[in-house]
């Protein structure tokens, strides 16, 4: 029930992960932190494109970056993505609980019908 209210605060993260290449980056980073060069070779994209996607992901906090010598190393920040997961799970939980109540209502209705027969 609160799911609609939550959507307003998660749309940025929704936007960021709506793009398949960015999801691919998150997928790679989910296995551990990576320097930009690794991401470039794993994704088979040009460095400027990868950097562009990483910038979007950084803006919503989905990834963090640190400097290691001359390398920029990226890692996933799952906490920033958690609102999306929670939003969907909350929706799912609410409806599952409603449906359990509905099962009981339907049992009663069927009982009434059987009694009328």
């Amino acid at each position: 029930m609160r799911s609609v209210a939550r959507a307003a605060t998660t749309t940025d993260a929704f936007n960021a992960i709506a793009e398949p290449r960015r999801r691919q980056i998150l997928d790679v980073l989910a296995r551990g932190e990576r320097p930009v060069n690794d991401l470039v070779s794993e994704l088979g994209l040009a460095q400027p494109q990868v950097s562009k996607h990483l910038r979007v992901l950084r803006e919503v906090g989905a990834v963090d970056v640190r400097d290691e010598g001359r390398m920029r190393v990226y890692r996933l920040n799952g906490a920033a993505l958690r609102p999306i997961h929670d939003w969907v799970k909350d929706f799912e939980r609410t409806w599952s609980e409603r449906f359990e109540q509905l099962d009981a209502v339907l049992d009663d209705l069927q009982q009434e019908e059987d009694d009328d027969r």
Binding site: I17, E19, P20, G78, I84, H85, D86
Partner: peptide, 21 residues
């Protein structure tokens, strides 16, 4: 930007991410 895949993949991914949190 070709997000016709929808968010399902992301949701599957996030399932794992959230569990790790």
């Amino acid at each position: 930007s070709g997000m016709e895949d929808g968010l399902q993949d992301a949701l599957d991914l996030l399932e794992g991410v959230a569990q790790s949190l």
